[in-house]
């Protein structure tokens, strides 16, 4: 099974979270924070800390440690709070 992260193919095993698959593929960060634009990835790994937020198929603020990877999912780096399309 494969999904894409910022356009690049990432292999994943069934049941694996997006975050676990990204780490297995050598990625440790996939988000930049709202205030300092600091890179973040998984921290708690169990859905508590919300550090591993990622945009999945256009939907912002998904927890990469909880969302299971699926075939052809489009995962992209999340900038800030995401949802740039709503900014005004």
């Amino acid at each position: 099974m494969r999904f894409t992260f910022d356009g690049k193919a990432i292999p994943a095993e069934p049941g694996q979270s997006i975050g676990a698959a990204l780490i297995a593929a050598g990625h440790r960060s996939w988000r930049r924070t709202r205030i300092d634009a600091a890179p973040r990835g998984i921290f708690c790994g169990i859905g508590i800390c919300h550090d591993c937020l990622v945009t999945v198929d256009g939907a912002a603020n998904r927890r990469a440690c909880l969302v299971e990877a699926a075939e052809d999912m489009r995962v992209t780096t999340q900038e800030g709070a995401g949802r740039a399309e709503l900014e005004c």
């Binding site: 603020n61 709070a81 949802r83 740039a84 709503l86 900014e87 005004c88």
Partner: peptide, 9 residues
């Protein structure tokens, strides 16, 4: 709500 970019002025 969760934090958002500026959506309401």
């Amino acid at each position: 709500t969760e934090p958002l970019p500026r959506t309401i002025r």
